[in-house]
Write a protein that binds this DNA or RNA. Structure first.
Length: 499
DNA sequence: ATAGGGTTAG
């Protein structure tokens, strides 16, 4: 086959194939020379301005640098080039001389004839955005055609991302999109991405999804990145329910979305957070069908969701499955499992698991012990609970706020007010404060047992530490002192009657 | 290679 010398693979510099005609400035050498000379003068002037007092160099009619630009090009009989203006504007923005930008723009708009390149506006709009001048950015965007420039999706995307960054500007987005159509800007997939990204960032996932549907309806392909972005924003939003999220997930998959490991994880986390453990299990099963092996964290999340939903049958099954897959449970996983056993009132099995996790080199932590303590208190086995506390001390696992609350509530529940008070003292020494209901219960029970003075003393002590007892505590104290007063009053009136 | 995940509430 003979190669056609004039084919597309031929010399692209031949006039016939040249995409753009040569700039008139570049066709004659003296213009090029003039431009270079003028630019040098401009750059020199810029440096001088930078090192001098700005107010001294202000010209009345034009900002100093603009008149320098005009004068120097005039001196070389050359028309100022877009490049020169770009340089000028970059200088003004980098030195934050905002007040000088407007006259330059006015001049380019009214006195120059060239087609202003879009990147000048892109630069300025970005600058306005960084300077938090969204309105200026927007005004300039709409003004672009007056500079003999046809704006493209570049400027549009930029303006949109600025608008999406602020909640109060969001409402302008539809208007801008509409106007951009009149400006003959062709919206692209990138525009949708900009909008969706910005909406996810400000946690308006509902809007992001609406945009995504528009995108699909308009025939743009759905890309995995957008899906991932939306899925990863599910946890931090409140607009979408778990049911809606599941529908979304199904629809995305129908449209060809191929989830990555992080997508399954994010979806599972959201569902578990919403109390949908079985639905989370469904997603993890999809993950396995899709050929990804879920890791320990995924299993732990699903296990905790299943426990929260009370699906204990699945708990055993899933824990075993995890072991079969060769995953090593860590302390988080064991804590979920132990909690599941405790929820089933199977404390003995829970204790066995804790013993075996130690044998396997996985040290129980304060969460593990708190779980056991809670279960033992519920079962009324305070003695065993005390044993666990002792064990914690021996193992060097410190008590935290939960530990005290669980134990104090447990002791109060059993009427062991003395022990509860000792623990309360201990936590106050560590600057830990009980929750109101715990404290109120202690006071209430002390009053019931006739320990009114002690209850009063305890209340005074904790109030001195800026703790505010609840209504129940005040009521108990008040009723006690009232009944005393009543007693003395009846005695008194009885005395009066006899008189 | 890393993070992520776990207690409780009448």
């Amino acid at each position: 086959m003979v190669r056609n010398p004039l084919s597309k693979s031929g010399n692209k510099y031949l006039r016939k194939f040249r995409k753009w005609p040569h700039s008139p400035y570049k066709t004659s050498w003296h213009h090029t020379f003039g431009e270079q000379q003028a630019m040098q003068i401009l750059k020199k002037a810029t440096l001088e301005v930078a090192s001098s007092d700005q107010s001294q160099t202000q010209n009345l009619r034009y900002p100093f640098l603009l008149s320098t630009l005009l004068d120097s090009f005039k001196a070389f009989s050359t028309a100022p080039t877009p490049k020169a203006y770009y340089f000028l504007i970059k200088t003004l923005t980098s030195t934050s001389r905002l007040q000088d930008i407007a006259p330059v723009l006015d001049h380019v708009e009214q006195s120059e004839k060239f087609e202003t390149p879009e990147f000048i506006f892109v630069h300025l709009i970005r600058f306005y955005g960084l300077a938090d001048k969204v309105q200026d950015a927007l005004d300039l965007f709409f003004r672009i055609p007056r500079f003999r420039c046809t704006p493209t999706v570049c400027s549009l995307n930029l303006v949109l991302s600025l608008l999406c960054r602020k909640r109060e500007c969001l409402k302008m987005v539809p208007q801008v999109l509409l106007k951009s159509q009149h400006m003959n800007i062709r919206v692209e997939g990138s525009t949708f991405r900009v909008l969706i990204k910005a909406l996810c960032r400000i946690k308006r996932v509902d809007y992001a999804i609406k945009i995504m549907s528009c995108m699909v309806e308009d025939g743009y392909g759905l890309d995995d990145k957008i899906c991932s972005l939306i899925i990863s924003s599910l946890c931090e939003q409140r607009d979408l329910t778990s049911i809606e999220a599941l529908v979304l997930w199904r629809d995305m998959r129908k449209l060809g979305f191929c989830p990555g490991v992080m997508d399954y994880t994010n979806m599972i986390r959201f569902l578990v957070k919403e109390g949908r453990g079985m639905a989370a299990l469904g997603i993890m099963n999809q993950q396995k069908e899709d050929g990804f092996k879920p890791d320990v964290v995924c299993y732990t999340m699903v296990l905790s969701g299943i426990v929260a939903e009370g699906e204990y049958g699945k708990l055993e099954e899933l824990f075993d499955e995890m072991l079969v897959l060769g995953l090593i449970p860590d302390v988080y996983t064991y804590n979920v499992y132990v909690n599941g056993l405790c929820k089933q009132n199977n404390v003995n099995e829970a204790l066995k698991i804790v013993a075996s996790m130690e044998e396997l080199g996985c040290k129980p932590n304060v969460v593990t012990y708190n779980t056991l303590l809670g279960a033992l208190c519920v079962a009324g086995e305070l003695g065993k609970a005390r044993g666990i506390m002792k064990e914690m001390g021996l193992k060097g696992v410190g008590f935290n706020l939960h530990t005290y609350r669980i134990m104090i509530d447990g002791l109060v529940g059993k009427g062991e007010i003395g022990g509860a008070c000792l623990l309360l003292e201990e936590m106050l020494e560590k600057c830990l404060f009980p929750r109101t209901s715990t404290f109120d219960n202690i006071v209430f029970q002390m009053c019931q047992k006739g320990l009114t003075d002690e209850a009063m003393e305890l209340t005074q002590k904790i109030v001195a530490k800026s703790f505010v007892p609840g209504a129940r505590a005040w009521e108990a104290l008040l009723l006690n002192s009232l009944s005393r007063a009543e007693y003395s009053e009846t005695t008194f009136s009885g005395l009066l009657d006899t008189n």
